[in-house]
């Protein structure tokens, strides 16, 4: 079992080696994260622990004359895709409930995605997706508020059946 100090400075755990490996793959824990093995006396960096060296793969030996870049492939940021989905829905739904919650959530998810991609550029891709989501969500919010305002201005012409909204 291991304890870690998260990016927020708080202590988490104890958690199993499996859990820690999963966090590592999710980016919740990185090579610089401080870890305390069960029974250990002092905190170490993840990169200093032999358990987290990639299993079975020897250290890559660069052929002479080549710069070896053994960087892990970047993966699409999940928040970015979620933000774009929400942004598109908010555009479609702008005539209904002003598109809220979709546009607000879309803005939040896209902004978080952009921040994550900016902070960890070698881990996440999807900046374009996140930007598209942000733009769609903001457009959805503007459209939604416009439709809602117009509907309130002209509301005397609408039927009220006690079931609107």
């Amino acid at each position: 079992m291991y304890k870690i100090i998260g990016a927020d400075g708080k202590e988490y755990g104890p958690v199993s080696l499996e859990q820690l490996r999963q966090w590592l793959s999710e980016g919740r824990v990185n090579q610089e994260t401080r870890v305390l093995p069960e029974g250990g006396a002092d905190w170490k960096k993840v990169s200093e622990l032999t358990e987290f060296a990639a299993p079975g793969t020897p250290q890559p030996i660069s052929p002479p004359g080549f710069q070896s870049m053994a960087a892990a492939p970047r993966r699409m940021n999940g928040f970015a895709i979620t933000g774009l989905i929400l942004g598109i829905i908010s555009l479609v739904m702008c005539f209904c409930c002003a598109g809220i919650p979709f546009n607000v959530l879309g803005i939040v998810f896209s902004a978080v995605a952009l921040a994550q991609i900016k902070n960890r550029p070698d881990e996440f891709s999807g900046k374009g997706i996140a930007l598209a989501g942000l733009i769609c969500s903001i457009l959805g919010l503007i459209l939604g508020i416009t439709v809602l305002t117009l509907s309130m201005v002209f509301q005397s012409e609408q039927i009220f059946d006690g079931k609107n909204f």
């Binding site: 209904c96 439709v147 309130m152 509301q155 006690g162 909204f165």
Partner: peptide, 14 residues
Amino acid sequence: PRQHGFYPKCQLHS
């Protein structure tokens, strides 16, 4: 909301 009409309306329903 069933008795007061001042709430914003759902455009789709209207």
